[in-house]
Design a protein around this nucleic acid. Structure first.
Length: 900
RNA sequence: GGGCGGUUAGCUCAGCUGGCUAGAGCGCAGCGUUGACAUCGCUGAGGUCACUGGUUCGAGUCCAGUACCGCCCACCA
């Protein structure tokens, strides 16, 4: 070694200065690829990043958590793979392109399918490379060479096979049913893509004239309350509860539907609630789910009054061509004119909006493809119930089970152009449907060639649901990755996506992987063993981050300003399973500050190494107490980190490591070691280098860039024993129980107390910070340690001359400020500064405190309920405490007596 | 209407299977450029752990209820 690389380090950690270079080095070294076949597999699959816009901070959290877990497992030697993936977020992408077209006054039909898809791909390909770049900046150690995309050919193959299997099993069917229609994107959406929001609207009470036997209007009418008067033209019955006395005589009679003057029958159905509205319900099977079911029970006609763009059609009579809002207003006005509006009340109720476009969704009857879900849901329910899949935190299992147990058939067809196209061809001659794994050229029934493919595409989540196995080579059951990595260990995602994605992945994967289990290729059909849920990242004030309100933290902006590691620190230190967290500048600053502390403490420690230093850690038995203390603490933290990471408690693991490094290693050990090194003692060097090395390893999963950068210098001084040339491929430390030394910890803690006590007196007595003061340390049981460490105590407390004595009698009593501790006493002669009254008061206060504590403890120990029932060790601890407090009290009283 | 979280220092949050003399970061007050770090160091102030009751030798921690705050699910027109 000629030059110490630490000496070239900048004096502060500069975010942005090293990340790019470090990342490139990792990539080139192949560190992101799994490389230990045969070891425990650990796989993480990446949830869909936002293809449509900026990187969201929630995604930065996902990335940070996943990356931490992957790096940890890789360092432990597991066969860990992170498969990055991009999902296609089809509806949103389609909407973006449609918006672009609309700005030019066009619709997709004007340019045709081919041109439309061309534009989509241009947009998507640009997004994909941007996403990859964003992930690099966040430090994601994904294996980009295996990147998969839900829209590529392999996925298409998997999607078609899944569709065909389900179809052949009778689990996919085509049917005309009530669906949720998004009039803006003009496609069906599934139930969970509808978000209900309270909207202030009105409750219109409308009079439906009652007809006599001959079909003539009587002067009686039945009042019906509705929030959607524009659907009145689609009414095909009026329903009342069979138990409702008010309307019993009306059942079976006819009433006239206002505005269209269509006679309909009054029917009795239990779905009608007597308390609701006026008690009588207009039945609109074409535009309401409840009414649809009533209609099915009573064989009612279904009338559709809506066009796909949300305007009314010819069935709406004179309202045809109007937009639904306009139709509502006109219709209400007409009712009023006709004297059929009894009253209008203000009313707030939940209205369904499309999750993607925000448009009010309209229930309407439409011919769509469906998945019969119950047969898929049943095994997926069992997998969670019998613990093959565990949710972290556990409470989300209930949410999942509740949803799964009430699940309804899944509408999978979408009337948008970009997506996996439904692999069904219709025969124009015989109407037969051919489901094709490859594009068929003739009808499989009549063999005619007049066939055409379904125009629709599949729900995004249909293909996303295949992710855990389709990315590993399925449907090829011999694919090596499938065998090696399925089932994966962890699905990491936000709790907002349980239904959309987690549930679908479980159902679809278990269905598809049954064969592989039967053939003994994989052990289990479940796609993953743990579902780890992180919370949402909220703005500093606790609100949902919103770009329009300016409360959104831009992750890449934060990376530029504070550094990638600082962002990760902020996100990871605030994350606890299932709970939301707030992200603020303060948190980011805390991350940056810690990165800087790591940098500087390491720089200093490494910078002390000189040519010829022996850096091998000697036998701990011969080490000074502070060395044994810091090694003991390090290994305890190491032990805790292992345990905590295994339980997904990343924030706590990070916190403990941080606290150790900063509060114990940097603030105490380095300070003490400094004194020895300056006195020419080289023995702290191995310990310094060792602790830095271990700390960097422990922190690498959380803060990969800064730790790698520092470790590179460290490795130049002290090469890795296993020959690793980068921290990312170095071994994660295992705690060494033999280095845990409780007596060393107790001894050093006593030293800390002495130092703090002297500092405290100095500050209280306003001694200038730079001035040296004479001090006595009454060591009691810790006298040996105090003697051994007296140079350090001198330096840390700025106390010189320092006298370490065994008993209070060996210290002066006149003009002395004393502090009585559990471990001994300190005494500072303060001739000029000594103030008798102040001293009396100070000691008096401490006596009162100690007396209170003694009294409490004595009472507790006098209670034989406590001494007999509490565990022996707890009782003993309390006895010890009483003893030390009593002796401290005695010391305090004596000090007071000496003052007089 | 059902379910789930939260309520701990001025702010943001830790406190695992009950033993706490209740912690951290930020903020606040005082002191400080002692050759790693002012993105820092030292010292300190600050809490009836939402409320009520219960179980227990012992409750921030378990149980029941109450009050707020938040989220999810649900076909009330």
């Amino acid at each position: 070694m000629t030059a110490n690389p630490a000496e070239e380090m900048a004096t502060a950690y500069e975010p942005g200065a090293v990340e790019g270079r470090v990342y490139e080095a990792w990539e080139q070294s192949g560190a992101f690829r799994p490389n230990r076949p045969g070891a425990d597999p650990f796989t993480i699959i990446q949830p869909p990043p936002n293809l449509t816009g900026e990187l969201h901070v929630g995604h930065a959290l996902t990335t940070a958590v996943e990356d931490a877990l992957i790096r940890w497992h890789r360092m432990k030697g597991d066969d860990a793979l992170w498969l990055p993936g991009v999902d296609h977020a089809a509806i949103a992408v389609n909407a973006i392109i449609e918006r672009q077209l609309r700005d030019d006054g066009l619709s997709r039909h004007d340019i045709g399918r081919e041109e439309f898809l061309k534009r989509v791909w241009e947009f998507v390909n640009a997004s994909r490379s941007r996403i990859a770049e964003q992930h690099r900046r966040l430090g994601a150690s994904a294996d980009w060479e295996r990147e998969a995309f839900t829209m590529d050919e392999e996925r298409e193959r998997a999607v078609r096979l899944t569709f065909k299997k389900l179809y052949d099993d009778g689990l996919i069917y085509r049917a005309e049913r009530l669906i949720n229609w998004d009039p803006v994107s003009q496609t069906a959406v599934s139930d969970i893509e509808v978000e209900y929001e309270d909207v202030e609207s009105a409750f219109w009470h409308v009079r439906y004239p009652i007809l006599d036997e001959d079909g003539n209007k009587t002067d009686r009418y039945v009042v019906i309350a509705t929030t959607r008067p524009e659907t009145i033209p689609a009414d095909t019955a009026v329903a009342v509860n069979p138990e409702d006395d008010r309307y019993r005589d009306l059942v079976g009679r006819q009433v006239l539907v206002p505005t269209v003057d269509r006679p309909v029958t009054v029917i009795a159905d239990e779905a009608v609630e007597i308390e609701g509205g006026s008690g009588a319900l207009k039945v609109t099977p074409g535009h309401d789910p409840v009414d649809f079911e009533i209609g099915e029970r009573h064989g009612l006609e279904i009338i559709n009054i809506l066009n796909l763009d949300g305007t009314l059609n010819e069935n709406a009579g004179k309202y045809a061509g109007m937009d639904r809002d306009e139709a509502r207003q006109r219709l209400v006005a007409d009712l009023e004119d006709a004297g059929l509006l009894e009253k209008t009340e203000p009313y707030t109720h939940a209205v369904g909006h499309s999750e993607r476009t925000g448009a009010v969704v309209e229930p309407l009857i439409s011919l769509q493809w469906w998945v019969k879900i119950q047969p898929l849901a049943d095994p997926a329910i069992d997998a969670v119930k019998d613990g093959r899949i565990k949710f972290v935190p556990e409470r989300f299992e209930r949410t999942y089970l509740h949803w799964m147990e009430n699940i309804r058939d899944w509408c999978i067809s979408r009337q948008i152009w970009w997506g996996h196209r439904i692999p069904v061809w219709y025969c124009d001659d015989c109407d037969h449907m051919t489901v094709g794994l490859t594009d068929p050229t003739f009808c499989e029934s009549c063999e005619g060639s007049n066939i055409h493919q379904d125009e629709d595409t599949l729900d995004t989540w249909f293909s996303s649901g295949l992710w855990p196995h389709s990315t590993l080579g399925w449907p090829d059951l011999d694919a090596p990755d499938l065998k090696r990595f399925y089932p994966t260990q962890v699905m990491e995602t936000g709790y907002d996506i349980i239904f959309f994605w987690v549930a679908r992945m479980i159902m679809m994967s278990m269905y598809n992987m049954k064969d592989a289990v039967a053939q003994g290729i994989v052990d289990d059909d479940v796609p993953f063993k743990h579902v780890y849920m992180h919370g949402l990242v909220r703005a500093a004030d606790g609100s949902k981050m919103s770009k329009s309100k300016g409360t959104a933290v831009d992750p890449l902006g934060a990376v530029d300003q504070y550094g990638s590691d600082a962002l990760r620190f902020a996100l990871l230190s605030g994350t606890s399973p299932g709970n939301d967290q707030r992200l603020s500048d303060e948190r980011l600053e805390a991350g940056r500050n810690f990165a800087n502390k790591l940098w500087n403490a390491s720089r200093f420690a490494l910078g002390m190494v000189e040519d010829g230093d022996d850096l091998a850690l000697p036998d701990p038995a011969g080490m000074p107490v502070e060395d044994r203390w810091v090694l003991s603490r390090l290994n305890q933290v190491n032990q805790n980190v292992e345990r905590l990471l295994g339980r997904f408690e990343l924030a706590e693991a990070l916190r403990q490591t941080r606290d150790f490094f900063w509060d114990e290693f940097a603030d105490w050990y380095i300070e003490v070691a400094k004194v020895r090194v300056r006195a020419g003692d080289r023995s702290p060097l191995p310990v310094l280098v060792h602790v830095v090395d271990r700390s960097l390893r422990l922190l690498h999963p959380f803060m990969p860039f800064v730790t790698e950068e520092i470790w590179q210098r460290l490795a130049a001084i002290a090469p890795d024993p296993e020959g690793a040339d980068a921290l990312i491929v170095a071994r994660f430390p295992e705690a060494q129980a033999t280095l845990i030394d409780e007596s060393a910890e107790a001894s050093f803690e006593a030293v800390q107390e002495f130092v703090r006590a002297i500092r405290n007196i100095r500050v209280e007595k306003r001694v200038d910070a730079g001035r040296w003061v004479e001090a006595y340390v009454v060591g009691a049981t810790a006298a040996d340690t105090a003697t051994a460490l007296s140079p350090a105590i001198e330096q840390l407390a700025r106390a010189r001359p320092l006298h370490v004595v065994a008993t209070p009698a060996d210290a002066p009593t006149e003009g002395v400020v004393t502090s009585v501790l559990a471990v001994g006493q300190v005494a500072l002669p303060m001739a000029g500064l000594f103030d008798l009254d102040a001293e009396r008061e100070r000691i008096g206060k401490q006596i009162a405190e100690a007396e209170g504590e003694v009294a409490g403890l004595e009472k507790k120990l006098a209670n034989d309920q406590f001494t007999s029932r509490a565990p022996a060790e707890v009782v003993q601890r309390e006895r010890d405490r009483l003893e030390t407090t009593q002796s401290r009290l005695a010391g305090l009283r004596q000090s007071l007596a000496e003052i007089g």
